[in-house]
Computed example of a mutant assay.
Amino acid sequence: MTSTTPIQGNNQGRISRRFAELKQQNRAGLVTFISAGDPDYDTGLNNLIALSESGADVIELGMPFTDPMADGASIQKSSLRALTAGQNMQKTLQMVRELRKKDQDTPLVLMGYYNPIYCMGVDTFLAQAAEAGVDGLIVVDLPPEHDDELCVPAQKHGINFIRLATPTTDAKRLPMVLENTSGFLYYVSSTGVTGAAAPTPEKVEGEVSAIRAHTDIPIAVGFGIRTPEQAERIAKFADAVVVGSALTDCVENAATPAAGTDAIAELTRSLAKAVREAR
């Protein structure tokens, strides 16, 4: 059985502590996603703080990129809005610093693609991310074969590297996926892009159980979860429930930036309540 990879650094333990707390409380966690700087820096920061204050147990903050190939229309548009407003990696890291002035406890994971990190320089990025208060990375286009490029250096900086598994991750591939994964495993419950229709909870539960036979790392389930009712069903068996597209839709559909922030806070509160009451 594979366990969480030990890491060293000044951020050691924030994700592990949160999942230990959730286990002690006998409940699943709520993992929320928004794109950094959507629709602009100031509003994006307000949205980030709203997640923190409204019940998110872990926050995924998207690193906007021009070619988000694994994302559906909602997150693609959120990334484009942020880039159009001038969001870049330095501003994204600054948002993390601003959040840490208010919240030292909620784990924060940067999620996105390798290109912006590579362009900044891996060593520079990791040093600044650790200093800002980043706890984990999800980089969807770096497979395990390239662990030496970012995954292993990240863990040396005290930053968890969170891997994705999918329904097509077979028994032969799974050990390689799990080998250097730390923090938690993100189980993508459906094939395709983010925001796609979710499979039945019964099917996902069986797939998650099969993965648990190979690891004791927490498993967060996402893709296609949009409502409190859906989140509650997944929370009955997953260690955490991930919601992203529904939150980025709050920004797109809002009449004003402030209304978008209010909608994000309201949805997060309702999702958090559903997750907490699932067991």
Rank of each mutant, 00 (worst) to 15 (best):
M120I: 14
V109G: 08
P68G: 05
D123C: 10
P68L: 01
T215S: 14
V241Q: 04
D141M: 06
L83W: 03
I225Y: 04
L30T: 02
D38W: 00
Q230V: 14
G192V: 08
D105A: 15
T92W: 00
V140A: 15
G72V: 03
D103W: 01
D249P: 07
K203Y: 12
A28N: 01
I117Q: 04
V251D: 06
D105C: 10
A130K: 00
I211T: 06
A85D: 11
Q12Y: 12
T168I: 13
G121V: 12
H157T: 12
D40K: 05
V221A: 07
T124M: 12
D71F: 02
A274D: 01
N47C: 14
Y113M: 10
M89P: 10
I234L: 09
K102G: 12
G62L: 11
A132R: 09
V242P: 02
T4Q: 12
E205Y: 01
R212Y: 04
P228Y: 03
S3H: 12
L110V: 13
G136R: 00
E266L: 11
V31N: 00
K101S: 11
A258I: 12
F237L: 09
I225W: 05
V204S: 04
S52Y: 01
S16P: 06
T215C: 09
R212M: 08
K23N: 14
P199S: 08
I225N: 02
A73D: 13
K172D: 12
N10F: 10
S54G: 08
T4H: 12
A278N: 06
G55F: 02
V208R: 01
N253C: 07
A265F: 02
D147H: 11
L271D: 03
Q25C: 07
L51S: 06
V134P: 07
V139E: 08
R279C: 10
G133W: 00
S245A: 07
V177N: 03
H214S: 15
T168Y: 00
D249E: 14
G72I: 02
A132Q: 07
P201K: 03
I49T: 15
K91M: 11
P175L: 06
L108G: 06
L164C: 09
S74P: 06
V109C: 04
E149F: 03
A238Q: 05
G86S: 10
G195D: 07
T84N: 14
R14T: 15
E60S: 02
E145M: 06
I34S: 07
L80C: 12
T168R: 02
E277Q: 14
G260Q: 07
I7T: 08
L267Y: 00
A246N: 01
R226S: 15
I217H: 03
A272I: 09
S78N: 03
A20I: 10
G29E: 05
G136Q: 04
Q155T: 08
Q76W: 00
G260E: 03
S3P: 07
R276M: 11
A70K: 00
A198N: 09
A263R: 05
A85P: 09
T32M: 09
A171C: 11
A165F: 01
L99V: 15
T169R: 02
G121E: 05
A56F: 03
S189F: 05
T194F: 04
R97A: 13
A73N: 12
T4L: 12
L150S: 01
D123A: 15
S35P: 04
T248M: 12
V177D: 07
N160L: 09
T256G: 03
R81Y: 06
L61Y: 01
T2P: 11
E232W: 07
P199W: 04
G158L: 11
T256M: 02
D216T: 15
Q128H: 09
